[in-house]
């Protein structure tokens, strides 16, 4: 092949590469996540649909970028006593999940917590391993956690955080084997 024909072929390949549309997340997913990043503080109401019991909790949600194109979500729930957080019986729980884009697909998958002593193993949903993923759409960010219980029933938890002018609206559902057992609804404002 002559030098000129090699250059022409390279030019065609370059043009083809430039003309090929890239998936939105592969191009640069961080800008799409940008509006969700931040710290939010607010309050939510937990409702147990079996017992009809309700409780109030303070919520503290932090969404940060992870590894260029992923994100980390950390949330602190403080379950209040008589609407207050300075009374005996108050409970505080911290949770954190990290997600990265799924290869070639427009959603995020959980990044397992690093454990240098553990061998990396295949996820076994039927062995009780949780399956977690997140979806971002125009409304906000939705995180799903799915697990098959020992007796074959399933549990699906969904956290939807939708953007508002001042922060986020939170809606959570816990469904076990088709039955909605618990909801959480609340609002949080973006911390300046």
């Amino acid at each position: 092949m002559s030098r000129s024909s090699t250059l022409a072929a390279a030019g065609v390949l370059l043009l083809a590469a430039l003309a090929t549309p890239l998936p939105a997340f592969a191009a640069d997913p961080t800008p799409a996540l940008q509006p969700m990043l931040g710290v939010y503080l607010g309050r939510a109401t937990v409702q147990d649909l079996d017992t009809r019991a309700t409780e109030e909790r303070d919520i503290d949600v932090e969404v940060t970028a992870f590894d260029r194109d992923g994100f980390r979500i950390r949330w602190v729930n403080v379950t209040l006593v008589d609407g207050r957080r300075n009374l005996p019986g108050v409970k505080r729980r911290v949770s954190e999940l990290t997600f990265k884009p799924a290869k070639g697909r427009n959603f995020f998958v959980e990044v397992p917590q690093a454990n240098v002593f553990a061998e990396r193993e295949e996820v076994q949903p039927l062995g009780g391993d949780p399956v977690r993923w997140a979806v971002q759409d125009a409304a906000g960010l939705h995180v799903h956690s799915f697990v098959i219980l020992g007796d074959g029933r399933y549990e699906l938890q969904t956290y939807s955080r939708k953007r508002t002018d001042s922060g986020i609206v939170l809606h959570y559902e816990r469904v076990v084997d088709g039955k909605l057992l618990r909801t959480i609804d609340g609002q949080a404002v973006r911390v300046e």
Binding site: R105, F107, V131, W133, A134, G152
Partner: peptide, 30 residues
């Protein structure tokens, strides 16, 4: 092991007395 996050639907079933329940989880773009 079938991981629905890798694009393959996960189907399983359970027997509960006289009832059989069949499940399927499929993710299309999340």
């Amino acid at each position: 092991a079938v991981n629905p996050l890798e694009g393959k639907p996960l189907a399983w079933a359970r027997r509960d007395g006289e009832t059989l329940i069949v499940y399927r989880l499929d993710l299309h773009g999340g």
